[in-house]
Design a protein around this nucleic acid. Sequence first.
DNA 1: CCTTGGTGGTTACCTTTGGTTACCTGATGA
DNA 2: TCATCAGGTAACCAAAGGTAACCACCAAGG
Lengths: 124, 124
Amino acid sequence: MTPSPGRRGDLFDPACPTRRLLDRIGTKWFSMAVKVLAEAEPGEVGFAELRRRIPGISQKMLSSTLQSMAADGLLTRRVEATNPPRVHYRLTELGLSLDAPLAAVRAWAEEHMAEIDEAAAAAG
Amino acid sequence: MTPSPGRRGDLFDPACPTRRLLDRIGTKWFSMAVKVLAEAEPGEVGFAELRRRIPGISQKMLSSTLQSMAADGLLTRRVEATNPPRVHYRLTELGLSLDAPLAAVRAWAEEHMAEIDEAAAAAG
DNA sequence: CCTTGGTGGTTACCTTTGGTTACCTGATGA
DNA sequence: TCATCAGGTAACCAAAGGTAACCACCAAGG
């Protein structure tokens, strides 16, 4: 109680940038969306195509994930004014730059998660 | 259709290692614990000292965070058999190696979260 | 004509779980 | 007597995430 209001390093206050970033990349589909969009060949991917490339995601989750990413300036929407209007998504430079640290996390996971599994199995 | 089933397979199944890692580092105190322990000078930190170095954390959350990390083989517990038994925590090599990708995430956050804030403010 | 399917969403509803506060243990030392 | 050590337990809250239904539009099939 009464956690000393004293100055703590910025890494720990509620507005800590790392915490706020982790809140985003910790959501279920965020990192997958970044990866799929970062690795997309034309750079631009339509909504339905994204659904196909992210197996298991629902329309709602894809829609809300893309919305929050757009609000964060990580991607842009382009609405094609055709018959059934198609919407295309593309990472901004900011969003693209985020793929680097995420790739580091992915690499660590693919290299070391087996060790975590062993430890978890041993711990019962 | 799907002439190439695009064997990005394992990255998207429920047992995807990246997803399972993100589920961990996305929890509120996990990354802070890794950082504090990785930067600790003796390498070993007691429970109460951890509480002091992670302002705002409760006993329960510190306890459960450390437990899950121990179960994952990321840290080890050393119980000092003194009168009030003190418990010391130390990252394993596995846990220590995780600090590298997390540092990349922290670096990105400190460098770019301001841009996200601007975009979010502009988006209203 | 009617039905089906695919386009890009939105809304309502429900469950799960992460996180919080609060209170409990026993032992010890001042 | 009281606080501190390292937790455990219970109850509660808010948010994440899932399912399902709905919308408007259009193309193809029968």
